[in-house]
Design a protein around this nucleic acid. Structure first.
Length: 507
RNA sequence: GGGCCGUUAGCUCAAUUGGCAGAGCAGCCGGCUUUUAACCGGCGAGUUCAGGGUUCGAGUCCCUGACGGCCCA
């Protein structure tokens, strides 16, 4: 790797450790006169004759450093300040003091360039505005845009707080397969991939649900998993094809237990990560501290459309009702699909403040338990905020006879052309036949939750590297190009099309 | 899949009815010992996303495509 470098200018590793990572914040509360040895990326560099100020940055913010000719002597002063450029990583050893304008600063007695940047950083004031650049080259977004750094730190703290909450509630964190031989646990199209060793196609999981239930059957009464799910659907501001979900299952709980627990969890995250139970999302205050009304699914649909789902229970009639309501029913192939369409178009957008939606029709979720008194509805709830479903939970169906019948219905719908149905997994039903405790499970969409907490206009803003179409041209080499032609270029130093790494220090 | 919008210097953005492609920041050179997006003087910087077309002349108008965004299905 060093073959093309000029050894004279190649920075050497520091011999001893620097304070790093959150040192920028730490220096702000350090008394004058304290020795400091810090490192970070140089983001501002102001040379003014015999005194030079700079800011170095890490994830906690920025701290000012200074080099003074009077302290260092002419030669050292000149060598050091001319050796560094904005973008370089530098190490500074010195003493903390406060400038006339009151800024805490480290006066350097030693100064080392730890590594260089050969490309120009984004505009120091405007940062990176181009959305595509922010997603494809997230490192530029992170280093240039503080609000982006803050978002991802909040994301990390949210997940950490959730883990602590569940661990303290005696849940066991487990991991279940992402590569599976059946896409189950949700109504969604899967990604298909090839398992070479087994010689067959596999699916990227759309949900860990049936595996987690098997784990509960195996006597782990409370389990959770935080992990990636994949759904082969369209991209829009509230959907990602690759998203992070929390799912938990607790034996002997029912959905009402989960309503209380998830509200407690969400409030704990708000308290400890945000510091307030209310957040503002796109100008709208969302108050998680207020009462969460419990709304009945079928009553809400009826209130807005006049359609009583307790009476209208067949596909054709509901299709007519939906069409009369102006909805596009040309692609509808199932009763459940129509119910979902009607709800999503009329009810969901109006549910802005946090609420529980309960009593969904039995057709909607083949893995959920029927209500004992009313077998046409499920013991199920969702938490809806800002028109987004952030939680879905229910008492689990643990009756293998009903489970088989419900999944066979799904298979029939699939045969009839509905590709968003659940696949029937024999293994899963067999596990149920060995016996499962009554239980309730819950899923919480981490990306949506974090987006609400950080006022992110799209979920892509809370995922470090959102899915994008293959990079265009340039070094990416368009398909069909002769690889032999560009082979020499691969070993060439990465020289920017713009500014060259000229002016080697010490020259 | 459909509609609309966008793509100009490393970054952020200008460019009149179609008439020499510019500024700030960044970079380079010089000045400046308490700056705060430091400031002052000088210099260099472009496949205007790609390809085609209209025109004496295209960043600008037309067509096709790429990538991205928003809305719709």
């Amino acid at each position: 790797m060093t073959g093309t470098s000029e050894d004279e200018s190649t920075p050497r590793m520091p011999r001893s450790g620097y304070q790093t990572d959150t040192v920028a914040a730490a220096v702000q509360t350090t008394p004058d006169g304290t020795p400091a040895r810090i490192a970070g990326r140089l983001v501002l560099w102001r040379r003014m004759g015999g005194l030079v100020f700079g800011h170095i940055q890490d994830r906690s913010g920025r701290v000012q450093i200074s080099l003074a000719r009077n302290d260092l002597g002419e030669e050292t002063f000149k060598a050091w300040h001319s050796s560094a450029r904005v973008g370089d990583f530098v190490g500074v050893t010195g003493t903390v003091y406060t400038t006339r304008k009151g800024e805490r600063t480290v006066a350097a007695s030693d100064f080392t360039v730890l590594n260089r940047a050969v490309r120009a950083l984004p505009d120091k004031w405007h940062g990176v505005a181009d959305v595509e650049t922010r997603y494809r080259r997230r490192y530029l977004d992170l280093l240039a845009n503080p609000e982006s750094r803050e978002r991802f730190q909040i994301r990390s703290r949210v997940i950490s707080r959730i883990r602590r909450f569940l661990d303290e509630a005696d849940f066991l964190e487990v991991e279940t397969p992402i590569l599976t031989d059946a896409a189950s646990g949700a109504a969604a199209r899967p990604f298909i991939t090839r398992h070479n060793a087994l010689g067959e196609d596999f699916y990227l999981r759309i949900s860990p649900e049936t595996y987690l239930k098997r784990v509960v059957a195996g006597s782990f009464d409370r389990v959770y998993e935080i992990g990636r799910n994949f759904r082969n659907e369209g991209i829009d501001p509230s959907h990602l094809q690759e998203f992070t979900m929390l799912e938990w299952y607790a034996a002997y709980w029912d959905y009402r237990d989960n309503m209380n627990v998830v509200r407690e969890l969400i409030r704990a995250v708000l308290d400890d990560v945000v510091g307030s139970r209310a957040v503002t999302y796109e100008g709208v205050k969302l108050d998680f501290g207020a009462d969460w009304p419990v709304l009945d699914y079928r009553e809400e649909v009826q209130r807005r459309t006049g359609v009583d789902l307790r009476v209208v229970r067949d596909f054709e009639t509901l299709k007519e009702k939906c069409a009369a309501f102006g909805l596009d029913v040309t692609k509808a192939v199932s009763y459940a699909g129509l119910v979902d369409l009607l709800y999503k178009k009329t009810v969901r957008p109006e549910l802005v403040q946090p609420c529980f939606l309960v009593g969904h029709p039995v057709e909607l979720v083949p893995l959920a338990r029927r209500n004992d008194e009313d077998p046409t509805r499920l013991d199920m709830f969702q938490v809806v905020v800002n028109g987004w479903e952030i939680v879905k939970a229910y008492s689990e169906l643990v009756d293998p006879v009903d489970q088989r019948a419900r999944l066979e219905e799904q298979a029939e719908l699939r045969a009839a052309g509905d590709d968003e149905t659940m696949m029937l997994e024999e293994d899963f039903i067999e596990a149920m036949e060995y016996g499962m405790p009554p239980m309730s499970g819950l899923g919480l969409g981490i990306d949506r939750f974090v987006a609400l907490l950080t006022d992110a206009p799209t979920l892509r803003d809370v995922v470090l590297f959102p899915s994008m179409r293959g990079a265009k041209g340039g070094e990416g080499a368009p398909a069909g190009e002769d690889p032999a032609e560009r082979a020499p270029a691969e070993n060439a130093p990465a020289v920017a099309p713009g500014p060259k790494p000229t002016g080697a220090p010490g020259s």
